[in-house]
């Protein structure tokens, strides 16, 4: 399973925005082999670069890696006997599919974690942020992974580097429609913060004042030039909320004949007013990223009419149905996460 926008190939599509995190993973892999392995968890929101990291690990350590991408909720019998595999690194993608939020839905992950801690192999696993946080609260998942790599949201300069790496210099034309004259005084950035009472770093949305734009408003001899390119990337990243996958999708949708203009970057608005059941199902889909209707029905239980709920979610443009698999619409992802956090469905 892949979310759209994560796998766009290009000349430098590896880990442009997450070099320090990749270096940390490489360092942990290099140090493994002696003693108890330091298992790695790569944790990120949907479309925030987990697949890119996985691809890079496979590229670097292909001959040592057993790769298992999970695409739906698994049963215990779906998992191989890891001990018998002739590889010393087990790389499992989308580990949120190891459990479901229902009574009896934790047996597979319990069994998997018991296998993992008794193994001498190094396990590298990727998780959806919200599943990770939920499972850390419920079964103390974080204690099984000494090395946790958190992929946060990215800032505009990083996004620009990620996107421009896909093209040759000068290949893209940025249309100037006079937008520099009405550019923004501030932008939203996502600095990583290490709080004293938390083990992991978190990204915090923060307002950064664009002094260069302010300076432009000064008398002419102090003016500086703001490029159209800067303003276009600023808009894309603001709409995408720092999510690189969403930003790349928006870029692709706004780009026509290798030309992009400010006016062509369309922002969709979503007005959400969901009841408890709808919020719960939507939060479950966001946490799992993709769910088959059978799994969704099992989670919803007999109390909820899940077909009616998903109809309402699809009809509002928040979720799409792909042959019985439900996922959040990419452009609705950031507003949906904001809404569910505000209403305490995600935490």
């Amino acid at each position: 399973m892949r979310m759209a926008g994560e796998e766009k190939p290009g000349p430098g599509s590896t880990v442009i925005s997450y070099e320090p995190e990749m270096a940390e993973i490489i360092s942990t892999i290099e140090q493994s082999g002696t003693g108890t392995p330091e298992h790695i968890a790569i944790v990120a929101e949907p479309m925030t670069g987990r697949s890119t990291m996985v691809a890079e690990i496979r590229r670097l350590y292909g001959d040592r890696v057993y790769y298992l991408p999970l695409e739906f909720v698994v049963r215990e019998s779906d998992l191989p006997d890891f001990a018998s595999l002739p590889y010393d690194i087990i790389l499992i993608d989308n580990c949120q599919f190891l459990s479901t939020r229902r009574i009896g839905g934790f047996s597979v992950i319990d069994s998997f974690l018991r296998t993992q801690i008794s193994s001498k192999k190094l396990f590298i696993t990727t998780w959806n942020t919200f599943s990770w946080q939920y499972l850390s609260s419920v079964i103390h998942l974080d204690s099984y992974f000494p090395k946790r790599i958190i992929l946060g949201r990215i800032d505009t300069p990083v996004l620009r580097d990620v996107i421009k790496a896909r093209y040759k210099p000068g290949e893209i034309t940025f249309l100037d429609e006079g937008i520099a004259e009405r550019s923004m005084f501030f932008s939203i950035v996502h600095p990583k913060v290490n709080l004293p009472f938390m083990d992991d770093e978190i990204t915090v949305p923060w307002i950064k004042l664009n002094f260069t734009v302010m300076i432009r408003k000064l008398p002419h001899h102090k003016r500086v030039i703001i490029s159209v390119e800067d303003i276009i990337f600023e808009k894309i990243n603001r709409i995408a909320g720092g999510n690189p996958g969403v930003a790349i999708l928006l870029w692709d949708e706004s780009l026509h004949d290798n030309t992009i203009s400010f006016a062509n970057i369309k922002e969709k608005s979503y007005s959400m007013s969901l009841n408890t059941n709808e919020s719960f199902i939507l939060a479950t889909i966001v946490s799992m990223e993709t769910l088959h209707e059978n799994d969704l029905a099992a989670i919803a239980g007999s109390e909820m009419d899940f077909k009616k709920i998903v109809y309402r979610l699809v009809q509002q443009g928040l979720v799409h149905d792909c042959n019985g698999y439900y996922s959040v619409e990419p452009f609705a992802l950031v507003p949906v996460i904001d809404y569910l956090k505000k209403t305490r469905r995600l935490w």
Binding site: I103, G104, G105, S137, T276, R344, W347
Partner: peptide, 17 residues
């Protein structure tokens, strides 16, 4: 175990430190 799972999988619960 059943009661714990009924609790933590409730649609109304919030769990954190």
């Amino acid at each position: 175990k059943i009661l714990k799972e009924a609790l933590v999988t409730s649609k109304y619960i919030i769990i954190s430190d």
